[in-house]
């Protein structure tokens, strides 16, 4: 039995071991092992040159990582919290995302940017954000979010092996929960979706922390619900999404991010464009509201809950 945090730690350990060009950089990741302890013990094992405690400057961290990559390294950046990624936004979207394109393939960007994301940990402002849509909207980035320990262990290694920049979103509220065992090998490719629970009546589409919420909702529901763990947010594994929804004929997207122009909007639009005549009901969304993330004592009223999901299921099934 392991945890999601420990599973990423062992994945990073294996990647550092496998390739001397792999480096980790970020704030407090070395001596402290990261504020969530995801990198615990790695600096001790691989040294201060490969697990780098960086100054407190996110743009500097990502920008210097790009320079290291130009020199031939593969760099894994840790952004301490989702809400702290914005100072690095320019280097991510105008530089990391475009180098391969700008240079017509002469300079790839094998970079992973690990970001703990999502709410539910009773934190103060800027520590509970779901910024995935910004990155999904940026050509040149790939975006993934594991929901469980085994996926996290394998996906971090697959992301490091990717020749493209990968935004690796880690569901922070699931970091330290008992998370099952790590499979002996990767169950799926980095950009494959996965059926977390099969069902016949409707498909709940979710990623990251919401997958577990959907599984709880499926368990509590009177209907036979399918739960699709999207895993890769950009690119989306459309064939798997379409196959599931074509079978159940109903889809409900669940995301912590605000509603307007979230990833759920794209999922709904595409399903309506391509699967309209196979569906019995419009795609529904259960999301955060279009307000900045609320203070901790109110976050339960903001986050998609089992009740809100079941309510959406009722609306879909009665359509």
């Amino acid at each position: 039995m392991t945890t999601l945090a420990r599973a990423i730690n062992s994945g990073l350990h294996r990647a550092l071991e496998a390739d001397p060009k792999v480096l980790l950089t970020g704030e407090d990741i070395g001596r402290l092992g990261g504020v969530f302890r995801v990198t615990e013990g790695l600096q001790e094992a691989f040294g201060e040159d490969r697990v780098i405690d960086a100054p407190l400057a996110e743009s500097g961290i990502v920008g210097t990582a790009i320079g290291l990559i130009m020199r031939g390294y593969r760099v894994v950046v840790e952004i301490q919290f989702d809400g702290f990624v914005y100072p690095a936004f320019d280097q991510i979207v105008t530089q990391a995302a475009r180098l391969n394109y700008r240079t017509a393939g002469r300079q790839g960007v094998p970079m992973v940017i690990r970001i703990p994301f999502g709410g539910g940990i009773g934190a103060i402002e800027h520590h509970s954000e779901s910024p995935e849509a910004y990155f999904c909207h940026t050509p040149g980035l790939k975006v993934v979010a594991p929901s469980n320990a085994s996926d996290a262990h394998w996906m971090i290694q697959q992301a490091i092996a990717s020749p493209d920049p990968v935004i690796f979103l880690e569901p922070k509220r699931r970091y330290h929960a008992a998370g099952g065992d790590i499979d002996d090998e990767a169950a799926a490719g980095l950009h494959d979706a996965r059926i977390a629970k099969s069902g016949a009546d409707a498909t709940l589409i979710a990623w990251g922390p919401s997958v577990l919420t959907c599984l709880e909702a499926a368990k509590a529901s009177e209907y036979d619900l399918e739960v699709l763990d999207l895993r890769s947010l950009s690119p989306v594994d459309w064939p798997s999404v379409y196959a599931s929804v074509a079978r159940t004929r109903r889809a409900i997207v669940v995301q912590e991010a605000p509603r307007t122009l979230g990833l759920g909007s794209e999922l709904a639009a595409r399903l309506h464009e391509d699967l309209f005549y196979d569906m019995e009901a419009p795609v529904l969304r259960v999301t955060g509201y279009d307000i900045p993330y609320p203070p901790a004592r109110l976050e339960r009223e903001y986050l998609p809950s089992v009740d809100r999901i079941l309510d959406a299921v009722d609306r879909s099934l009665s359509a």
Binding site: G63, I66, G67, L68, I69, Y73, R102
Partner: peptide
């Protein structure tokens, strides 16, 4: 490459130099 975002290349040069050092 030429850099159109003012100053962005200074971080790349610094990271590259860190790589030379490593």
């Amino acid at each position: 490459n030429y850099q159109m975002i003012i100053g962005a290349q200074t971080l790349h040069a610094t990271g590259y130099a860190m790589g030379m050092q490593l």
